[in-house]
Design a protein around this nucleic acid. Sequence first.
DNA 1: TTGCTCCTCACGTCACGTGAGGTGGC
DNA 2: TTGCTCCTCACGTCACGTGAGGTGGC
Lengths: 145, 145
Amino acid sequence: MSLITIGRLKDLTGVQVETIRYYEKIGLLPTAHRSAAGYRLYGPQHLRSLSFIRKGRALGFSIDSLRDLLALAAHPENPCDNADLLAGNHLRSIEQKISELESLRDALRSMICCPGKRVAECRIIDALTHRTSPENNDPAKNEEN
Amino acid sequence: MSLITIGRLKDLTGVQVETIRYYEKIGLLPTAHRSAAGYRLYGPQHLRSLSFIRKGRALGFSIDSLRDLLALAAHPENPCDNADLLAGNHLRSIEQKISELESLRDALRSMICCPGKRVAECRIIDALTHRTSPENNDPAKNEEN
DNA sequence: TTGCTCCTCACGTCACGTGAGGTGGC
DNA sequence: TTGCTCCTCACGTCACGTGAGGTGGC
């Protein structure tokens, strides 16, 4: 049972040492064994779990989602509906974020065009100074009293 | 010179009370006047600045960028190259974020498809368990020793 | 007197990153 | 002995949000 140090685990997974310790602290990664001097020692299962976590984080899954996905992965015979649900929700939140950013991108593009002008004619400053009141245009709240 | 309270300023701008106090604390918004009882009182210039900030935040500008943009807006006769530069950098970071999210979206879409299966055949769990080693595939670091 | 607004801290968020100050291993 | 790795805290990040505990205004 070849055990490896945290530095070696970092090299094998690409996960920073401090991040590995953090995952252990929050209970995402199982507790490491310890050498006589107190060094953390990791086995093959730690390596598998950490690789799983790293791939999940790269896909943008939250720590809590990865907790669930790790638990699912431990029971291959169970149905995987929960994994589909988690990934589906995650996909939808990404799609929404994309469309929000596309709106910002389009708004910014419409402002950038004319270098070498003065602030008084600048379309960026103008967009921030004038135009469009707050989103929550609730007349009951915004009316003068 | 009609002065308004923080609650009224919130209603007029859509910015939360705690957020307005926070902006004052970090020096983004000028210090408010105070009533005899210690209530903050705001004038027309505060309202204009806060509206400017709110629109800038809605466009995704950072607090530090808004500091610069507010300073620029105060000098209409100056050239606005800095505003173009700030907005251009911001636009590029948004475009990059969009393409990163599109990659995630595509990767997730390729995994979601087959409900009602078992974990053993789940493409989501499979993607996290097997396939693709870390990005930093540096042979000098990852080779066995 | 009621209850609405305002006040000042202080701590929490999310997932780590950084730095201080110290020790073990070869 | 050197210097590399490891250890444990504690605090910082970004832009706020929330809650405690209290006071002013009508």
